[in-house]
Amino acid sequence: MGLIEEVIKGNPRAAARIMRLIEDDVPEAREALKKLYPYTGKAYIIGITGPPGAGKSSLVDRLVEEFRKQGKKVGVVAVDPTSPFSGGAILGDRIRMQRHSTDPEVFIKSLATRGHLGGLSKATDDIIQVMDAMGKDVIIVETVGVGQDEVDIVKTADTTMVVTVPGLGDDIQAIKAGILEIADLFVVNKGDKPEADKTVRELEMMLDMSAPREDGWKPPILKVSATKGEGIKDTMEALEKHRKFLETSGRFESYRKDRVAHAFENLLRDKLFHMVMSKLKENGTYDKLLEDMFSKRKDPYSVIEKLRCQCVLDTENN
């Protein structure tokens, strides 16, 4: 179909359409993803996470600028939270990404979490696939600014940047709680503020005290001012260094294999659930089971143990 070819040629309008279908999880989206799949796996994916208002979007804007100077095509996925009360969302990351808002080689997509936990939205990985198939060389993913559990990004990105800012007090503690392990790069943004050096020193101390990473990578700490454009060159160099490290250590490839497995497992979980459920729901078995468990005639643990399924992979056409 025309739309798929257009995406592969890099047509942003075609890509936008497909991304929307993916977000809304309509059946056509999966058809599109099937066809785009052979064209994916090439882009370098950078994740950016950190507390609300740390300057993630402002930093993305600067990084995009640098990548554009290198002639790279860039995709940006920016995730903001969905309101648990209304199901609506305000996606405001574009406000800080104005520099590229009409550049045809920069594609910016805002996503709402839509109830998904972990800092990304369910559609994120598939949207990245579309950008990848479009021919984007670099894809930057900004997570929601929660500050604690945006761990999804590690599975999604090749390089994960954690952005923090001076003067958050307990924030350093929050970083310790789990984000420390996920950062390939630390950025202390708002480096134009006087307390920034102190934050850098605190981070250095924390890193010195923590156990060395098993992959041998030592995460650098960069002092940046996104608004003033300071420290951006150093950040770009650090990114490049990490990318080289991934390539020479074989991780660039192994991460891609992990991602294939991860995506497949997610699909498998969905598929198995629906297969088993629809089987159980035949002849009212499911309702009867629920009734039995509710009245304590049966317990759910034994019911699950008794479950047998035949699993057949139909490879006829391959």
Partner: peptide, 19 residues
């Protein structure tokens, strides 16, 4: 609009028609 359940993309001020 958000509180009514819509997803709002907010771009802020000073937008050109191209943007």
């Amino acid at each position: 609009l958000r509180d009514a359940g819509f997803e709002v993309i907010y771009t802020g001020l000073h937008q050109s028609l191209d943007q």
